[in-house]
Simulated scan of single mutants.
Amino acid sequence: MATKLFRNLVIGGVLAAGLGAMAVKPRSFSDKRRNYVPTLSETMYAHRGLHDAGSGLDDADAPASNEYVQYARSMAVQAGYGSMEDVDPIAPENSLPAFAAAAEAGFGIELDVQSTADGQIVVIHDADLMRVAGDSRKIADLTYDELVRIPLFPGAEPGAAVSPLATGEMPAGQYQHVPLLSDVLRLVDGRVPIIVEFKFDDMRSWGEADENFMNAAADLLDAYQGEYAVESFNPAAMNWYKQNHPDVCRGQLAQDLRFGEGDPVVWGAGKLVFNWMSRPDFVAYDVQNASSKALKLVRSMGALAVGWTVRSAEQYDEAMPYFDRFIFESFVPEGTPGHDLAL
């Protein structure tokens, strides 16, 4: 009896392991070959462009951030935006100058897309404008015409992580606002590879608005002649790409959260249990979770591992054994092949 029970437990364990492996399995090599899927270029990807205001610049553990800010500004100026004497930021995160600066330096770019109230595809990370413009209104509730009247990081000093309060009125002089994806693609013009993250407010539902968002953004990217890949925390978005654009390199964003932390879908995606939906070519994983067993398993099965977001040379060195590509900010990577990073 005991022998039979042990045998059944072993069989059950093998079946469970097999099902688990199938659940996290990435896209197969034969599928990639059949659809002529390009791999993710081997370069460093600048998080939201090379920026002098915004994400990651409030990290007290990143003493190189001042050097990074100056480098971002110098590359933006070299690309034709502002001057080093400007007292306000000239290249806020996810702005045209930030992307121009990254392209000028030869880095790849990671950016975020959402849809406005009038169906325009714009490049911005947060669901609202509070952090970047001091305005509590949501992107989904604003038209693009309204967005161009709201400056990013108005009156901030270079290196600011959060903007001072904005009035929401059209300011005088030059300023940066939330850009259209079409304008970003026109600016980059194939010079460097791009990773496009699809952002969603609610990941537990999927409706007509989501379909419209995916179609509108995919149409812009499909017409683009440069190299790009797509990613999302939402496995349904990557499943949409699997069904509609199997020739595009796609990635599952994830982080290893404790149970009960954050959205249940994000928690599940962190364990990669939704890979059966997205069948990703790469997994973009939080570098702080570098030793994750789920990441190690899916990497052994052929998925590229992309680390986000590395913010210091020390963190980069520590994460190197666990990842194949990196998204970075707040520091200037040294020794990256093909880049002259001297200031």
Score class of each variant (00 low, 15 high):
4 K>D: 12
26 P>S: 06
27 R>C: 13
31 D>M: 11
40 L>M: 08
42 E>R: 08
44 M>Q: 10
47 H>Q: 09
47 H>W: 01
48 R>G: 06
51 H>V: 01
54 G>L: 04
65 S>K: 15
66 N>K: 15
68 Y>K: 08
82 G>T: 04
84 M>L: 14
87 V>F: 03
92 P>M: 04
94 N>P: 15
99 F>P: 03
107 F>K: 02
108 G>N: 01
109 I>G: 02
117 A>W: 05
120 Q>Y: 07
123 V>D: 11
128 D>Y: 06
129 L>F: 09
134 G>I: 11
136 S>T: 10
138 K>Y: 15
142 L>C: 08
148 V>T: 15
154 P>I: 12
156 A>P: 12
175 Y>Q: 02
177 H>G: 06
177 H>Y: 06
197 E>W: 00
199 K>E: 13
211 E>G: 07
212 N>T: 15
217 A>L: 02
221 L>Q: 02
222 D>L: 03
223 A>E: 15
225 Q>V: 08
226 G>S: 02
232 S>W: 02
237 A>D: 03
248 V>F: 00
249 C>M: 09
251 G>W: 07
253 L>T: 14
259 F>A: 14
260 G>I: 11
269 A>P: 02
269 A>M: 09
274 F>K: 03
278 S>G: 05
282 F>D: 03
282 F>G: 10
284 A>F: 06
287 V>I: 14
292 S>T: 03
295 L>Y: 06
305 A>N: 01
309 T>S: 06
310 V>A: 00
311 R>G: 06
314 E>R: 08
324 D>E: 07
325 R>Y: 01
339 H>I: 15
340 D>G: 12
340 D>P: 13
343 L>N: 14
